[in-house]
Design a protein around this nucleic acid. Structure first.
Lengths: 352, 352
DNA sequence: CTGAAAGCGCTTACAG
DNA sequence: CTGAAAGCGCTTACAG
């Protein structure tokens, strides 16, 4: 292996018989170069397969890039949105070296208008790239359209919006994750069974997400399940007590339930209803929040599907970096893995 | 938030009333500085919480660091060891910018002596850091001890060795992964069952790994399993046909088998025996090699436990980088996640 | 023991 | 349209 030294813009300049300033002009397409020297230089660049030294380049250019993020406010350290936040912060720490500043804005999930307010404040910092969690769809779409007009690159995290034009998004395939959930329940219930599908969410929550998970779940049972199952869907935003009452109203005995799928992180609310039974049903839900982790470890929840929220935040910032700073193409879709967590592997499941 | 500009060695020099050369001398502990100026400078460094700019530092120091790797030769692109290799190469590509060269050495798993030979060649390149897959334990330990003497930092991947002193290792907890495998089988077999535990390996393979997986598996059944299971252990390094014969010898009817655990990636060999049965047993094994993936997708294998080999390779190189270049502390143990892969989530499981 | 100077590869005004 | 020069923050001989 020859230790080929990386070629520098000085080398190109010499070979083309010009100064490095001129080479730099064509590299950055800032004109003021005659057509033929430009052609000549471009040819040499390709011939030598020149790769700029990012270290030197960011060191020399003192201009500091500003990124902005717009995500739901995490009410406590335990709540879901604290996690993408961690990944974002980790990425920020690494990228500070490259002179990148990141300003964060948070909106209130309960109050859609706050997204628009924060979006306006965000724009005042005139960022070079934006990360958005489009949790409140209508407001988020309005904002995205404004960014499309202004030609500011943005990227979605957690989910995406159909009519927007982000440079990319980082999210989990919700349909497929519901499909997987069904498999996990079906695998554990060999015979016929009564299965409850819970939507434990308020209207303002990202409805799209949850209904896709439901669709995936039902798809599996339509296509794959061997036996005759009865699937009952239950919607509620209340407590365990309220859910129990609902079940009574529906004429369902707790002991008859074989499997439970909850389409979001509220699975702990459902699990609480069933935790003292003689025979507990198979329970599958989402996300490693504290209450779920406890129930998983004590065997009251069987599987939690996880979407690596920290990794999503981390990856999203790096994608912005690749696009804005490195000027690289980025994949338009970044589906994150659909991770299966049990009491047995949770201790080794790190944000990494 | 004040846009506090990063402080530079020039700032320290000014504040201490010395030149940047002197500051640099204390930063790099290369002596030739009087005690009191040294003290003064150290104090200022801490007071200002100075962080060197790695960009500038690696740009200025033209010395290029050499890493070396010593891993099993991957016989084909599909074999397991091709995957850590991918992660290593990805890390190399990223780190080239920092002037790091990596030389790779491969040994033949069938021929333990080749490890020692390659290790000798490796040392001739006098690397600044080494990555080792200690697959052949005795030979690997000898090499590690030599490195301990020479004070060359090294790091293990895939597993670790008790009497060696690596700066760190990246591996999966084998005991726990076997424990998880048992859970996955137990979850799918509600009643009593006949379960086969297969060791499909040659003697030269990393025996330690596999027996730990077995221990974990049995541990689960001892501690947790509700019902009375019969677990039969079968060792073989042969084909599906040979295995079928063994089962006949043992008086086991294929149709009576409820669950199968294979302690390594050879799970496809076992799965082949059972794939045409009326009722296929629950099958759990390891690693996403091509043959396993096919059987997983077609439903002949239920779960594959994966150890993110690409991520291991990638992480290991970065740990070396953090230790050797950044001079950071690194965690002495890096257990990778124990991932559960099914037909339903495999398409989203990327090396990332 | 200490400082001044050149250089890493690139960017950025500035002068022509 | 083009080139020469200064500078990014650090390292590395070299001279005293």
């Amino acid at each position: 292996m020859t230790l080929k030294r990386n070629i520098r813009i000085k080398d190109i300049a010499k070979k083309a018989g010009v100064s490095i300033g001129t080479v730099d002009r064509v590299l950055h397409k800032r004109g003021e170069v005659s057509e033929d020297t430009k052609k000549r230089i471009i040819q040499i660049i390709e011939e030598l397969d020149y790769r700029p030294n990012i270290l030197a380049s960011t060191l020399a250019s003192k201009k500091s890039i500003v990124f902005a993020t717009l995500t739901p406010k995490a009410s406590t350290m335990e709540s879901y949105w604290a996690k993408p936040q961690q990944g974002i912060e980790k990425a920020i720490a690494q990228l500070r070296q490259y002179g990148i500043k990141i300003t964060q804005f948070f909106f209130d999930m309960e109050n859609p208008g706050s997204l628009t307010n924060e979006a306006t404040r965000l724009l005042e910092s005139s960022p070079d790239g934006i990360l958005i969690a489009p949790w409140v769809q209508d407001e988020a779409l309005l904002f995205a359209q404004k960014l499309d007009e202004k030609n500011i690159p943005y990227l979605f995290i957690d989910s995406t919006l159909n009519d927007a034009h982000p440079i990319s998004f980082v999210a989990q395939n919700s349909l497929q994750s519901g499909y997987l959930a069904a498999k996990l329940i079906d695998y554990g219930i060999p015979g016929d069974g009564l299965i409850l599908l819970f939507h434990l969410a308020k209207k303002t929550d990202s409805a799209n997400h949850l209904s896709q998970r439901e669709d995936g779940f039902l798809k599996y049972y339509n296509l794959k399940a061997q036996n005759d199952h009865r699937i009952v869907k239950i919607e509620s935003s209340g407590s365990s007590e309220e859910i129990k009452e609902r079940l009574v109203d529906l004429g369902i005995e707790l002991c008859d339930v074989d499997g439970i799928f909850v389409t979001n992180s509220k699975v702990h609310v459902a699990a609480e209803c069933f935790k003292d039974l003689c025979k507990t049903p198979k329970i599958v839900g989402y996300d490693l929040i504290t209450k779920n982790i406890e129930l998983l470890k004590s065997g009251k929840i069987d599987f939690l599907i996880c979407q690596r929220p920290e990794a999503q935040g981390y990856a999203a910032i790096h994608l912005l970096f690749d696009y804005v700073i490195r000027k690289e193409q980025v994949k338009p879709e970044n589906y994150i893995s659909i991770d299966i967590i049990t009491a047995e592997n949770i201790d080794y499941y790190s944000s990494f």
